[in-house]
């Protein structure tokens, strides 16, 4: 089985978010970039297929050279080879078009993405790719088994979960629970050394136009101070929620 894990390079969850150039761009200064948390679960699941079933695992990212440390980390975790499409990831449609091309060229049986990138929260790249490639697709995936070309996937739905039967080639968008958090792979020294020898193929983008454009960013308005209610006056909270906030 040949697996591609699509990795988006995102600010660490603790990052302070600021904007620059007259609020037209995200300010990356001082920001630590990491593998998108949703993609980390998928990468670990891919490693499981590699260890148990001898799958080959490639990782791909659409991004400029600055994303290479994140890709190297994925190689150190155990991916066999990496592909970087050398382009700024302008929007979901553009990225999906680039990754669809990588999938076509590589002939992958399984493509593992994440439910969403935690930066722009698009949640669209895997679905658009599936549509462009005519591949089966399961979103918010929290369980995946494959046997030959048959696959069983579990997805999270509002208020529960659903089990789906499908076939490879398949694209999933994973998230927490796809693997146990305690099983998440982190790079060790040997992995980091080995990653240096692995292939990181840089490919040019294919012709594609973005479908949307972020014109301007803004931070949420500063919050007013909290209204504190004394612990002995709990009834007052009920009153405020009813007559002031009007939520009960």
């Amino acid at each position: 089985m040949k697996i591609l894990v699509c990795i988006s390079n995102v600010p660490d969850t603790t990052s302070k978010i600021n904007f620059t150039d007259d609020n037209s761009r995200f300010d990356t200064s001082g920001v630590q970039f990491v593998i998108n948390p949703n993609d980390e679960f998928g990468l670990t699941r891919a490693m499981w297929f590699k260890e148990k079933g001898g799958a080959t695992v490639h990782v791909a990212t659409v991004g400029e050279a600055t994303t290479e440390p994140t890709i190297r980390k994925a190689l150190a975790i155990g991916a066999d080879e990496a592909i970087r499409v050398d382009a700024e990831p302008t929007d979901g449609f553009f990225v999906a078009t680039q990754l669809a091309e990588v999938v076509k060229q590589g002939g992958y049986d399984l493509v593992i993405c994440g439910r969403e990138s935690i930066d722009y929260n698009g949640g669209m790249v895997p679905g658009i790719m599936a549509s462009l490639l005519g591949m089966n697709f399961v979103n918010t995936c929290i369980g995946l088994e494959a046997d030959g070309d048959q696959a069983t996937a579990v997805r999270e739905i509002d208020g529960g979960k659903e089990t789906l039967r499908t076939t490879l080639p398949l694209i999933i968008a994973g998230q927490k629970r796809l693997v146990e958090e305690s099983d998440l792979k982190i790079p060790n020294m040997r992995g980091i050394m080995m990653a240096r020898q692995k292939k990181l193929n840089v490919v040019p983008p294919v012709e594609a136009s973005p479908a949307s454009e972020d014109l301007r960013f803004e931070k949420p308005a500063p919050k007013g101070a909290v209204t504190l209610v004394d612990a002995t006056q709990v009834g007052e909270l009920v009153r405020l929620l009813h007559s002031e906030a009007k939520v009960i």
Binding site: P210, A211, D214, L215
Partner: peptide, 8 residues
């Protein structure tokens, strides 16, 4: 954050 996004 918020973004004002133009659909093209």
């Amino acid at each position: 954050g918020f973004a004002n996004t133009k659909i093209l």
